[in-house]
Design a protein around this nucleic acid. Sequence first.
RNA 1: GGAGAGGUGGCAGAGUGGUCGAAUGUACCUGACUCGAAAUCAGGCGUAGGUGUAAGCCUACCGUGGGUUCGAAUCCCACCCUCUCCGCCA
Length: 431
Amino acid sequence: MLDIQALRHDLTAVAARLATRGFVLDTARFEQLEGERKTIQTRTQELQAKRNTTSKQIGAAKAKGEDVAAIMAEVAHLGDELKQLEAKLEQVQHELNAFLSVIPNAPHATVPHGKSELDNQEVRKWGVPPKFTFEARDHVSIGEGLGGLDFETAARISGARFSLLKGPLARLHRALAQFMLDTHTDRHGYMETYVPYLVNADSMRGTGQLPKFEEDLFKVPRQSGDGRQENFYLIPTAEVPVTNMVRDEIVQLEKLPLKYVAHTPCFRSEAGSYGKDTRGMIRQHQFDKVELVQIVQPEKSYEGLEELLGHAEAILQKLGLPYRVVKLCTGDMGFSAALTYDIEVWLPAQNTYREISSCSNFEAFQARRMQARFRNAQGKPELVHTLNGSGLAVGRTLVAILENNQQADGSVKVPEVLRPYMGGMETIKVS
RNA sequence: GGAGAGGUGGCAGAGUGGUCGAAUGUACCUGACUCGAAAUCAGGCGUAGGUGUAAGCCUACCGUGGGUUCGAAUCCCACCCUCUCCGCCA
């Protein structure tokens, strides 16, 4: 959520910044809603003040044993008008809130302007894509050849966009998650967390998935005590439960930055991605991810983002996987982000770099929605900044290892850092 | 699933219809005392919003939502959450 004060004081400037990411701010609508809000709120508060003083008079008069009939009559009619106004005020405030909650974050000044991923800016490259003396196969072919990747059975069990891993590949998947968690906790200073995979709507609103992107989520209906229906949502990323750990909290300054890591499954409906990445485990309804989250002071958030990006990169470097870092342009950034770096890993079979991590600074956008604050040096509550990034997407990392480490005979070399997690296994061989 | 207790400011904890945004303690801030600190004493100290150049003034908020009333932290209803005991259970 943007700061409503910024919209009140500098509407055109805010609209201009949003325009760079392709969002048209309906300024007329905002001004109209704001105008209504102002009039109604002022009038409501006047009446409330009158009611309060009169009620106090009644109390005082009664205490002295005086007759209060006259004052009572004076205030009798107030109730109805006040009730109407209060209802109207609530409605306008709801509309304002709905209006605000679908406005994306304003891009940071250094974000390159652009419309699509074609306009993203390459920041750096690491590693050299491997050269093969044979024709590189894709991970599906490799995995099936190893007998450890079975999409047919996964489809029977669930449907399209699910995968089933067996034997050494299932273990490799687990090894990757363990390795990432260990690295981030032991070397990068994150606290490991285990979090709920089903969350409530407030949490989804807090990080920005709701109200705008409900169709991307898996919704789990539940009956509440009075028979009303509420929903749980399957998390699309650990960002949601982990960041919401500080929702409605005021964190002590000394506790910052908070650095959390979580390994969770992620569930995405992938609505609107029909026909995209239909082969293999690149785009799934369910995939595992190790997520890094930092809760920081505003002045330190960009510093924190660079650090977090480095932590994600460290995993790829230790695994020996070639990658590049790109800075997303205004048109390609997610709804809540002010600045995003994507890390893209080299996939030989596709002869290109594919996203394996996304690291963003949300500034106060999520914090404002969550009312996540810290007590600043002056002792006043102030919104925190939130950061997160994948460190990394486990399924895609597995894909990258299969494709980059494939051998002529169909076997796959296990990266050295993973071998302790694989019982010393150096190569995954065709069984 | 059954029975009970409870949710009030950073924390603890009073408050069962009227000047209660809320006693008191504690934490924190400022000042005094001190070479300095501790202790002690004095004062200050919630959040959000409106309005105003400002000082200030006003409004809302005592788990959430609704109701009763001129007036609700306090009474009524529903829900959520926490705790204890019993049952069940991975």
